[in-house]
Amino acid sequence: MAAAAIISMPKKKPLPAGLPREWYENHNRRLKAMRLAISLLDTGTYDAKRATNRKIRTMAVRVGIHRPSNVTCRMVRAFIVANGG
């Protein structure tokens, strides 16, 4: 009989100190865009053309993420295109 695999979450490392503020903003924007892109892909939105700003922002509400900006929405579409959509 096979035992259930125990998966633990990776430990978060603190962000490096002393970088410009823009670096931290861009880092957090990429993380938000990646979470939204994964959520859209999980719900069947594989085409970046169908990932409108409205659809991305609706998904953000469903997932519990703050409303993304236009720049973040573009980044979500770029992640979907990079995924093959």
Rank of each mutant, 00 (worst) to 15 (best):
residue 21 R to W: 04
residue 26 N to V: 00
residue 58 T to I: 13
residue 68 P to S: 03
residue 24 Y to D: 01
residue 9 M to F: 15
residue 54 R to V: 14
residue 27 H to L: 07
residue 49 K to A: 15
residue 54 R to L: 14
residue 2 A to C: 10
residue 14 P to N: 14
residue 43 T to W: 07
residue 21 R to L: 06
residue 43 T to C: 10
residue 52 T to K: 08
residue 12 K to R: 15
residue 22 E to H: 04
residue 69 S to Y: 03
residue 60 A to C: 00
residue 35 R to Y: 08
residue 69 S to H: 04
residue 40 L to T: 02
residue 6 I to N: 10
residue 58 T to W: 09
residue 57 R to G: 06
residue 10 P to D: 06
residue 66 H to R: 15
residue 52 T to E: 07
residue 60 A to F: 03
residue 55 K to T: 07
residue 32 K to Q: 09
residue 10 P to T: 07
residue 50 R to V: 11
residue 1 M to K: 10
residue 6 I to W: 13
residue 64 G to K: 01
residue 72 T to N: 06
residue 17 A to V: 13
residue 33 A to W: 00
residue 60 A to I: 00
residue 27 H to E: 02
residue 8 S to I: 14
residue 18 G to N: 02
residue 16 P to A: 03
residue 68 P to G: 03
residue 25 E to I: 05
residue 40 L to K: 04
residue 22 E to G: 00
residue 41 L to S: 08
residue 70 N to K: 14
residue 68 P to F: 00
residue 54 R to P: 06
residue 28 N to Y: 08
residue 52 T to A: 09
residue 41 L to F: 10
residue 10 P to K: 08
residue 31 L to M: 09
residue 35 R to N: 01
residue 39 S to T: 09
residue 39 S to L: 07
residue 20 P to Q: 00
residue 37 A to K: 04
residue 69 S to P: 00
residue 73 C to S: 05
residue 42 D to T: 09
residue 15 L to W: 15
residue 79 F to M: 11
residue 78 A to T: 14
residue 18 G to A: 01
residue 2 A to Y: 11
residue 22 E to D: 01
residue 51 A to H: 00
residue 11 K to Y: 13
residue 50 R to G: 15
residue 31 L to V: 06
residue 47 D to W: 12
residue 43 T to Y: 06
